[in-house]
Design a protein around this nucleic acid. Structure first.
Lengths: 211, 211
DNA sequence: TAGATTGTTAATCGATTAACAATC
DNA sequence: TAGATTGTTAATCGATTAACAATC
């Protein structure tokens, strides 16, 4: 069956369903209805059923969804049933904090290679990993099968490094640099910019004061 | 004139316009058209005009928008013409990296108070700031007029701390903990979860392989 | 004046919600 | 069987885009 095109907003919600379902499992629930799942996530039951129907019929009429089975399907759809090797570029304060964050590995994202441009850092080792020079990306990365990179570097360097990474086979970028990256079709970028997030909330704080 | 209700998606795009306009100014542009702005941001010119029209008419027919003037308007609308005091909760690796990040202060967000629950950290000082105990939030925060808090703490504690912060006057939460916070109407949360971001990209990586 | 570009209205598109037949 | 809940279609809602009169 030809896969319909799935809106990105649905894919993003699917990650929420994934966490909600794990929560159900932790609570010992065997069956969950779209109703209950919706209450957990503040979305309508209809939306959950609609979203899931993009990928198949996973429930039973009159019953609901088997938590384990649906969780398994969602994991498979999102590609979470494997370990993804990840490149981390930039080992300043933020980069090092990300490297030490346990959550990535717990969820199957394993940082296997580090890059930085600072000659003072290149060649040094953190844990098991040596910091390589940015310039080596083209040389070492393709053989590693890395499709995901985390960018934790200054905004001036972000575009240049992104270009090199994409050239070396990376297809998904988690970008902490406050820059809108220009990437070709077929490359995915998620922006992790705390300033943008704050600056869109201050709008509401102002209108709060005025009210 | 009664302010029409502005969709959140418009507010978020406004932050993008803000950065694009700064870019224009840096490049020495005096005037910019919706066309050019759109090209810089990969949105249509019509959308930019529509978005701006929520707030007023800032351009001149036949000419375009004055960069300085529009930038000024956008800053005012977003509440970026002042300094916002910020509370930071959680001083693990991530919290400390955020504290040392220069970008916040440059953009007018000043971290003025630190909280943590670890007795080993409470009472110690980073830079000018002493780390206070989470339990003191209710006591010290209200007098400070802090409306914005950054949460960089373990998921188990996030909801509890969020509740205390809101009780103490916080209205906007930048949440790095991988938890969907339950907050009352009128409180804004932006989720900064790298795992969710990665997990929604792997979906596309999988379909890439299958293609 | 002629050309350009805004601000706004109308048309289109897509996403969300409601409704309900199918069925467990 | 009666009650519950899915999967799907149709209705609604909202956001984006196109078009164009106004006007610089």
């Amino acid at each position: 069956m030809a896969q319909r095109i799935v809106p990105d907003v649905v894919v993003r919600r699917l990650t929420q369903y994934y966490y909600a379902l794990r929560n159900c499992r932790k609570r010992g629930l065997e069956i969950v209805s779209s109703q209950l799942l919706g209450e957990m996530l503040n979305v309508t039951a209809a939306q959950i059923r609609k979203d899931l129907s993009f990928f198949g019929g996973f429930g039973k009429q009159g019953i609901g969804y088997n938590v384990d089975s649906l969780l398994d399907h969602v994991q498979r759809i999102l590609g979470l049933k494997r370990t993804w090797p990840v490149a981390l570029v930039g080992l300043g304060n933020l980069g090092r904090a990300l490297l030490h964050y346990q959550g990535f590995e717990k969820e199957g994202f394993k940082i296997i290679v580090l890059f930085d441009s600072d000659p003072g850092k290149v060649g040094t080792t953190i844990g098991q990993l040596e910091i390589l020079d940015d310039k080596e990306i083209a040389q070492v990365l393709p053989a590693m099968g890395v499709r995901i990179a985390i960018l934790a570097l200054p905004p001036e360097k972000a575009q240049e490094v992104a270009d090199m990474l994409i050239e070396a086979g990376v297809r998904a970028l988690l970008n902490y640099a406050p820059v809108t990256l220009k990437v070709p079709e077929g490359i995915w970028v998620r922006q992790m910019d705390p300033l943008v997030a704050l600056q869109s909330m201050t709008y509401y704080l102002v209108s709060l004061e005025e009210a």
